[in-house]
Design a protein around this nucleic acid. Structure first.
Length: 219
DNA sequence: TGCCAGGCCGGGT
DNA sequence: ACCCGGCATGGC
């Protein structure tokens, strides 16, 4: 990739970091909570996810044994505030099944699996696609896999970074940033922070840390 | 009041 | 290969 893209991405990062400071993502206490949150937040407001997670904690369901043993209908009940609760209960169960089948219900055992193989395994779970998989890899399993979400795509598009799909956009970031866990972690978190505040479909660019860079608000 | 949120699946062209 | 409806709650 071009040096200018590299420079551009670095300047974006510096501007966002200077304005907002470190985000210290993911907002969750444990890898287990992060994985559950990654699935629950699919097309859903994070505030609703927090309620669902609070329910799971209160019900003692936030561990892999409990999640394996709980009846799907009861799981759905607990995560109701996160929306799509039937679908998401099934998706959580799909992940739990995979974890027990492949790794005996122990996240630590995943460490021996290489990134490429692991990503393919996670992507094979029904209901877990690119963004959810990469969020789990990066924030729960500490693998350098750059997360692309709706904000990333919108911000990139408005700033003239052309990519035809998820993987092409992911490659732009991965190939032009140091392949560093802390960098990937913080960069995506900053994008979400900026996106929520300044880059929703209806939001204005006023005050956005990236507003001084060339962009098209309506792109 | 409607639109939106840190997606993904399945069926139709 | 794209396009679309479905899935569902809570906040603004």
């Amino acid at each position: 990739m071009s040096e200018s893209t590299r420079t551009k991405l670095r300047r974006f990062y510096d501007a966002m970091y200077k304005a907002l400071g470190p985000q210290r993502w993911w907002p969750g206490d444990s890898p287990t909570e992060i994985i559950v949150g990654a699935i629950l937040t699919q097309n859903t407001n994070w505030g609703n996810v927090e309620r669902a997670i609070a329910n799971l904690k209160a019900a003692g369901l936030l561990d892999w044994v409990a999640l394996r043993d709980v009846a799907p209908v009861r799981l759905a009940e607990q995560i109701r505030p996160a929306g799509y609760f039937n679908v998401k209960a099934r998706r959580l169960k799909n992940f739990v099944d995979w974890l027990w089948r492949k790794y005996g219900g122990d996240l630590d055992r995943i460490a021996a699996t290489g990134l490429t193989t692991l990503r393919a395994e996670v992507l094979a779970i029904d209901g877990i696609r690119r963004e959810t998989a990469d969020s789990i890899l990066l924030y729960a399993l500490n693998r350098p896999s750059f997360v692309v979400d709706a904000y990333t795509a919108r911000i990139a598009r408005r700033h003239g970074l052309k990519a035809k799909d998820y993987h092409e956009l992911q490659a732009i970031f991965e190939q032009n940033l140091p392949r560093d866990l802390a960098m990937f972690n913080e960069y995506h978190a900053l994008i979400v922070a900026v996106g929520k505040q300044y880059c929703r479909p209806t939001a204005r660019c006023d005050g956005c840390p990236l507003a001084r860079f060339p962009h098209d608000e309506k792109a």
